[in-house]
């Protein structure tokens, strides 16, 4: 086989492999594994609420968009159309109680039943921020 043909075939193959890798690892890269990835911050639920409600700007910069782990006594579990939400209530406002709302990953919907209402629970989730009433954690898992 002629040298120029070998180079052309090699370049074509390299291009195809690069396009595949770019598509797989960049364009279609998977979402982070919220359950398995380590939390960037770990603190008491009451401490997280205190920080957001006393210094919102600093807390938004520090925690928004981060995977964080909180622990404390939860107040109740709510069921919505799409998910189960573990609520830590710390305050009463114009629209009911206010605190931290943790939307569980589907596989943990039933697992929360093992923790009686008011018991200590450790939850890891993606912090979306503070919406004037509650801090929102999504993609939450219950940590042992």
């Amino acid at each position: 086989m002629k040298t120029w043909l070998k180079i052309l075939i090699t370049l074509c193959l390299a291009g195809i492999v690069s396009a595949f890798l770019f598509n797989h690892y960049v364009i279609n890269k998977p979402h982070p594994d919220y359950e398995k990835e380590p939390a960037k911050f770990s603190l008491k639920a009451s401490e997280l609420y205190k920080q957001y409600t006393t210094d919102r700007k600093t807390s938004e910069k520090k925690y928004n968009g981060q995977l964080i782990e909180i622990d404390g006594k939860y107040t109740r579990v709510e069921k919505s159309d799409t998910s189960s939400i573990v609520v830590f209530a710390f305050n009463q406002g114009m629209f009911g109680d206010e605190g931290i709302r943790c939307t569980l990953l589907p596989k943990y919907k039933t697992a929360i039943a093992a923790y009686p209402k008011g018991s200590e629970v450790k939850i890891k989730g993606f912090c979306s921020g503070y919406n004037d009433t509650d801090i929102i954690l999504t993609k939450c898992s219950i940590q042992k």
Partner: peptide, 20 residues
């Protein structure tokens, strides 16, 4: 109505990153 923009979930992770 109050909405947290980081709570929007996309099918593709890259889209979610670009959005935010």
């Amino acid at each position: 109505v109050k909405v947290l923009m980081q709570s929007f979930e996309f099918k593709k992770s890259l889209m979610q990153e670009h959005f935010n």
